[in-house]
Design a protein around this nucleic acid. Structure first.
Length: 106
DNA sequence: CTCTTGACCCGAA
DNA sequence: CTTCGGGCCAAGA
């Protein structure tokens, strides 16, 4: 289990999130059996090598919000990608996780 | 060694 | 809806 480095485990799992769906940092951490490492999921994504293509945009925080300052370039890029794949945002910039949250299995 | 910094989370007001 | 407080832990200064 600990054979594979944390970052790689995160990238692999994130890679399984289907288009049009999102997962939270905490959810990813829990699925990896490390419920206390929610923030480190974010660090892993931040450390993604330029060559590695993964759907990092499908990871948001537990409230269904993008974890970047609202007017930042990063925020707009992530939101744009998600909207392109059909994810909807409320007026307050929130995603309804009941509708768009990823449930492994389902 | 201690302090600070985060793509976080959760419960209680 | 918001704010506050506490918890978490790796990495860098």
């Amino acid at each position: 289990m600990a054979q594979i480095p944390w970052n790689q485990r995160v990238w692999r799992l994130v890679n399984r999130i289907p288009e049009g769906r999102v997962a939270s940092y905490g959810q990813i951490a829990r699925l990896l059996g490390e419920p206390r490492k929610a923030r480190h999921v974010g660090y892993a994504l931040a450390a993604t090598p330029p060559g590695l293509i993964i759907p990092w945009q499908r990871v948001v925080n537990g409230q269904g919000r993008i974890s970047f300052p609202e007017h930042s370039e990063k925020y707009r890029r992530q939101r744009g990608k998600l909207e392109d794949e059909g994810v909807e945002f409320s007026e307050s910039g929130r995603i309804n996780l009941r509708l768009f949250g990823w449930q492994p299995e389902g």
